[in-house]
Design a protein around this nucleic acid. Structure first.
Lengths: 138, 138
DNA sequence: TCATGCGTATTGCTTGACTGATACACCTGA
DNA sequence: TCAGGTGTATCAGTCAAGCAATACGCATGA
């Protein structure tokens, strides 16, 4: 399954599509040249409107991640290794930003925050990726 | 001036109040026992409705940062050392969990992830909360 | 040529967040 | 007791985001 929509999550559908595709492109799971399913096909698979998929595709194309030639399916655009590396780091930075803000506002020292993050990284690396769920509600 | 509202920022007024007060409490600029201005006083000062201030105060009270006794002004709650330390760390852990997961799935090394987090912590600590700017949308 | 599939521009609806006006209950202090 | 202070419950209005139905232009292949 390419994309999964969780209606219970509060995040709009088109943004979930963007996030998951962007993630899979950055991580290399969708290499350059990969053809994406049509808007109608993916929409039917997800049980949503084709326009919602189209909105996601359009924004990804604006970002230069996808290429669209009329009459042909959308393709993942080839990106340099450096661009991919920067993209990966950017995504991690975005994930870390709220944590850094929380640490500051909570008055937790940088050293303590880093120690916490280090232990979490070890736990996550050892955990099975399949059941990537938060242990308790945050 | 206790709080500043920037109408052009896109962030709702009640949330700007929460963020700024939370930061000032965490940083010690508003020590325990400090009496906050009344909802009406702060509302008039900011040119907004008292209910908007009340909403912010109410949420901060839910978080245990403020204490309200009917008929008396709101007070900053005394931060009991050990019990709140664990709770603060738990909240930071929850903020860090998705980042640790992203680092693992993106194939970013623990060392690189920690370096990134360290630099973000420095940036966040130096930033003034008044102009809490998103560098670029994540 | 025509049927088929493609992406999407346009339009309107729904939903929820945000805000504010009003009214109320409560406490303090004269 | 009562005037004046407090926070806030309730209700209604505004606004933008998200989504979907429809229709259109385009490319392909028989």
């Amino acid at each position: 399954m390419l994309v999964l929509i969780d209606a219970h999550q509060g995040v709009p559908a088109y943004r979930q599509i963007i996030d998951q595709l962007r993630f899979q492109i950055a991580s290399g799971r969708l290499p350059a040249g990969t053809e994406l399913p049509s808007t109608r096909a993916l929409a039917q698979q997800l049980g949503i409107n084709p326009m919602t998929v189209s909105k996601a595709y359009g924004l990804l194309e604006e970002d230069g991640l996808l290429r669209h030639r009329p009459g042909l399916p959308l393709q993942v655009v080839a990106q340099s290794a450096e661009t991919l590396r920067a993209e990966r780091e950017d995504r991690l930075r975005c994930a870390l930003q709220p944590a850094a803000l929380a640490a500051t506002q909570l008055g937790i020292s940088n050293a303590r925050a880093l120690t916490l993050f280090r232990s979490l990284l070890s736990e996550t690396a050892n955990a099975d990726i399949a059941n990537a769920e938060p242990d308790h509600d945050c």
